[in-house]
Simulated assay, not measured.
Amino acid sequence: MLSRMKEDIDMVLEMDPAAKNRFEVLATSSGLHAIWSHLIAHRLYRRNFTTSARIISQLTRFLTGIEIHPGAQIGRKLFIDHGMGTVIGETCRIGNNVTIYQGVTLGGTGKEEQKRHPDIEDNVLIAAGAKVLGNIRIHENSKIGANSVVLKDIPRDSTVVGIPGYVVKQAGEKVKNVRDLNHADLPDPILDMIMGLEDEIKDFRNEVRNEVENGSHI
């Protein structure tokens, strides 16, 4: 446990530019507190002390704003940045070197039984507000854009945006003329649609103006 804690502290220092020293990380990182608490709750859960495990997870949610069901399985170097409003469901499995931002839900759709929550493979980044729902798999090295809603499997090395989420970049190549992406500049399909409607309205206004100027009746 102590080696795991040291590894996690070093990971936060590497990942978080706001973190200044180990003591600060140890005292203030809500993501680490939630993960360490989960490790205890998960051990109890596996030994069928389910009520005690749920009590620990609920107390942790109250203290950190992060809810991780004690049944969830998480790998090493899970980085939960900020974390407020993050929810990780009971049958979720998370690999190594995964990054999760605030407001993320790894939840169910209400339609599955037994395995209800997603599997997140190694080196995945899930941006703020994203929802990954159901018994699906996000394959390694993928990125889920902010506020996306993902309802199906995502292949490795993919970037996903939108509601519902769709792949816009895979293995370093754009998919169907979608512009280049990074975590700070993900496309917004809803905004693109609104901008398209505005262009159509402008075209219509120009047509009306031309008709009026030419003396035609509408």
Rank of each mutant, 00 (worst) to 15 (best):
R43T: 05
P17R: 05
I66K: 06
L13R: 06
N48C: 13
S52M: 12
S57T: 12
L26H: 11
M5G: 00
R22S: 14
A27Y: 09
S57P: 06
V25W: 03
L39V: 07
T50F: 05
G31L: 05
R47G: 01
F49W: 13
R47E: 08
I35A: 05
A34I: 03
A53T: 09
D16P: 00
E67V: 05
H33Y: 09
S37M: 06
T28W: 03
T64R: 06
L32V: 11
N48W: 02
S29E: 09
L32D: 02
S57K: 10
D10V: 06
S37L: 07
S57V: 08
N48I: 00
R46M: 08
E14A: 12
L39D: 10
N48S: 15
L63S: 13
T60S: 15
R61Q: 15
R46P: 00
H69V: 04
I9W: 03
G31D: 09
R46E: 10
R43V: 01
E7R: 13
D8L: 12
I55Y: 02
E7F: 00
R47S: 15
H42D: 01
T64C: 09
K20G: 01
R22H: 11
E14F: 15
H33G: 01
I68V: 11
A41Y: 03
I55F: 11
I55T: 13
I40R: 02
L32W: 00
L63A: 14
G31Y: 08
N21Q: 06
T51S: 13
A41L: 01
T50W: 03
E14P: 01
Q58S: 15
T50K: 15
R47T: 09
E24V: 09
A41I: 01
V12E: 03
S30K: 14
V25K: 07
I40E: 05
G65K: 08
A27E: 12
T51P: 05
S30I: 03
A18N: 08
L39F: 11
F62E: 13
D16E: 07
I55H: 06
N48E: 15
A18E: 07
V12H: 03
I40W: 00
T60G: 12
S30A: 14
E24S: 08
M11G: 04
M11R: 13
R47D: 06
R47F: 01
D16W: 06
R61F: 14
R22I: 07
T28G: 10
D16T: 05
R54P: 07
R47W: 00
A53V: 05
H69N: 13
L63I: 07
A53W: 06
L63F: 12
S30N: 12
R61L: 14
F49Y: 15
T50G: 07
T51M: 12
S29W: 14
V12D: 02
T28N: 11
L59V: 11
K6P: 00
I35N: 06
F23C: 00
M15S: 11
T60A: 11
A27W: 02
E24D: 11
G31V: 07
T28I: 01
A53H: 07
R22M: 09
S52V: 02
T50L: 08
F49R: 15
H42W: 02
V25Y: 02
F49G: 02
T64A: 08
I9T: 05
